[in-house]
Design a protein around this nucleic acid. Sequence first.
RNA 1: GCCCGGAUGGCGAAAUUGGUAGACGCGAGGGACUUAAAAUCCCUUGAUAGCAAUAUCGUGAGAGUUCGAUUCUCUCUCCGGGCACCA
Length: 840
Amino acid sequence: MYNHREIEKKWQKRWEKEGIYRTGKDSKKPKYYILDMFPYPSGAGLHMGHTESYTASDIIYRFKTMQGYNVLHPQGFDSFGLPAENYAIKTGTHPKETISMNAKNYIEQMKMLGLGHDLNHLIYTSDSSYYKWTQFLFGKFFENNLVEKKVDIINWCPSCNTGIANEQVENGECERCGAKIEQKEIPGWFFKITDFADELIEGLDKVDWPEHTKKNQKAWIGKSEGAKIVFNVKSQKSKVISTLEVFTTRPDTLFGATYMVVAPEHPLIKILSTCHPREGGDPENCIKNYNEVEAYIEKTKKKTELERMEGKEKTGVELKGIKAINPANDEEIPIFVADYVLANYGTGAIMAVPAHDERDFEFAKKFEIEIRKVIIDNTVIARSRSDVAISSSNNKTKLMESPHSIHDDKLFTGNGVLTNSDKFNGLSSEEAKEKITKFVNGKLTSNYRLRDWSISRQRYWGCPIPIVYSPKGKAEFVGKENLPWLLPEDVNFVPDGTAPLAKSKELKERTEKLFGKGWTPEVDTMDTFVDSSWYFLRYPDTENNDEFCNNKKLKNWFPINLYIGGEEHTYMHLLYARFFIKAMNKIGLIDFNEPFQKLRHQGMVLDSKGMKMSKSKGNVINPDDIVGKFGADATRLYMMFVGPLEDKAMFKEEGVTGTYRFLEKVWRLATDKDLIDCGGKCTEVLEELPSLLHKTIKKVGNDIEKLHFNTAISQMMILVNTMNKYDSLPKAMIEKLLMLLAPFAPHIAEELWSELGHKKSIFKQKWPEYNPKFIKDTKIELIVQVNGKVRARIETNSDISENDAKNLATKNEKVGKWIEGKKIVKVIFVKGKLLNIVVK
RNA sequence: GCCCGGAUGGCGAAAUUGGUAGACGCGAGGGACUUAAAAUCCCUUGAUAGCAAUAUCGUGAGAGUUCGAUUCUCUCUCCGGGCACCA
């Protein structure tokens, strides 16, 4: 009787004792690095999503090992982060303890699932032996000008009392706590990820990632090409008092710019708000309606992002007393402040071309600003031309005036041909972009949606930023010799608006002791995404105290062959990690520039009705319960069988029954049948089996390689169902089956393998090879179609010729019915498969 | 609104390059074994008509290309996810 409880425990113990999961050293075998996204050790433990993706990577690990690779299959914990800190605030338990307790539970669960991670080389990002190197890398970035401190408008979570990255804002709410995000100007550290924007786009071309993931990441970086153009700003006294730079993707429409807009946060407003004679200005040289403008700015500040989204109607206030000069035609145009222009995209100011931009169009109509058409729709021209040809008047000027009047208020946002643009008339948009930009001394350039990565967090449970400030306020790296720059222990981290580390006496004293009186420590900690941006570099060399990873090991193990994890990490983790690798490559720390050669996602695991699992809904399924009931092998098998890895999976317990039954069948096959030891002559013993076995060997191998685990399992089911029909079976055949099954259901495979008398683990066996000789079918069912419809199936030899097939088919009674009295127009023959007779 | 996915039986799904639609599993129905039940085994299971052989229809809808379309092209509908005034 198949008793999963007994055998799974037994083998888990034995495997651990024998250390079969340890990565081999200085192996001559080729390397394979399979990586899981490491978990945050939460109190809830592993969930079904982990079960799915970790099983997938475990199958790959065991398969590649059996194929003769030296496989690195590590695991660790992303153990810094808010939940443990919040829990500490609530209960007083130090995050360290929470983390270690939870991690212990995770490890037990991973063992329970039979996952073959090398647990002797675990990583905890909150361990000083790890974050020492996070700090080292920060120092390297600092020295190489890849990180800078700047005051910027950042997203501020008033509940967490900390700044957060753009990527971590959801619907205007904090991703972690749900509080409404405010915009706040605070100083903080930023990684210069935007320096790598182009490389981050280009690098995607050389990695094997899902196409949609690449597309999404590219869209997130958001490159758009256009020009930067400077407008002069003058006062009532006709004096140029300032300039306004804009970014536009449509410099070809410059002649149609009839007003300008600055974002409420734009510095120009402040600069022109007060015009004291003392500052060389006078009241005639500034914004005359500043009170009104200020009121508008205050109003937008109070608007939450949600409210801004709801009220799509354009609002704004004209900056009275000043005008901008359109550099193309020297016309004076009004300047507005309006919240439809964003402070942190482009230059925070736009030239508005209402005739050719939807938003500007709306705004201009509301504020009654001139809508000047400067581009004509090509396709309309083409149409007009033919109209004109009919009326035999092929005059270009006439064409441009009618049916499109120059001052009409139709909106057209596409590219076309220029009009009303002085000497540029008649040029295409493409040509004009370059020429007009040059004409006004602008610069063709690219702009990105991607922002620099704000990493400062005013939290306790994170990696301390290894920076100290001189008495004059100059920031300096603490130096490699002072790493790890320890997270202080004497901190009460209940949030009160000041950064927790600022309350540490020890940190302050440490800083003064090492650097001198008046020196102060940086009190912010790093975003936890910094920790997870390089963890995979540490795995090959977790014990190394002198380097983050030994150079030889870096050369051996990277890039990572396969990375499996959720699609939700496309914009943050996967982008940040790629940035880290590119930055480190630039500094010369590593010699590759893409970390993850191949990436695959696992889909979400939903409940049986297709709902997301959540505590509040009470529909969370705990892997422990399922494994307790059906065993790890049946659970693993089900998670893989339910559908393609990347698809969403609905978890149904009856489904696990199915894979459990399958394992019982395998068990009986190996224990109840007469096993024949027929040496090399097994193929002669039974008719259909050798062919099916070899087809199965081929399919299972290919499917694992493609991560099509569901079809690999169904193929094994077919084999088992067929084998089950026989009372006696060649022992070698059972053994091959067990080897195929081993990566999926390791415990039962190992148990039966040892029952068959083997002393050495099944995972030390070489992956079976198939013999093409047995795969080739000699007999086939030839499909005969008439006009594309299947009319007969004729058993025949697989190598039948077209002529023979045709004769066979036309003689066939069933086929005859359909071609009788008709003329055969054409015959299509697909060798070994199909014959299609086309009749009329 | 834009971007990215997806849509195949009662359900999860499968289908090399355009070539037998529905493999495999679940569920359901029937049968065998059993005093009985569970377990196991066998049969049936896309729809319609028919005792049956068989025929017609059928991969979200509509069109197109083709001897032949789940697969390729176009248009549309619905569902899921992401982004959201990106200049």
